[in-house]
């Protein structure tokens, strides 16, 4: 199937999302820039999306969460109960 050059906003923003992970193809990026040139909303989306990526990199680190000591004790108790029912 031949890929079209003119894309809609839904497609454009999906390509923009892909490009945040450097996984958009050159052709996709070309289509996106044409779309953004003509579409203010998606142009704004692209700017905000790049900023969102920075926010994620700075602020989202779920691995810093820990189990608290009392939660571990609770787990042990649960396990113990089921070990010798």
């Amino acid at each position: 199937m031949r890929k079209k050059i003119i894309i809609n906003c839904d497609e454009a923003t999906e390509i923009c999302d892909k490009s945040q992970y450097c996984e958009a193809s050159t052709f996709d990026k070309f289509r996106l820039s044409i779309h953004n040139f003509l579409c203010k909303k998606c142009h704004l989306y692209s700017e905000q999306n790049a900023l969102m990526t920075k926010l994620f990199k700075t602020h989202v680190h779920p691995e810093k969460e820990h189990l608290k000591q009392e939660e571990k004790e609770e787990l042990k108790k649960k396990l113990e109960e089921n070990l010798y029912p």
Binding site: N8, L51, V60
Partner: peptide, 30 residues
Amino acid sequence: GKWIEEKAPSNWGNFGEKDIENEELKKTLN
């Protein structure tokens, strides 16, 4: 495939690089 008007991005004002480091923002994002 076009934006539904009230879902389309609107302007975020003068948010800049220096405003990224912010505990409240981090909380909201998470």
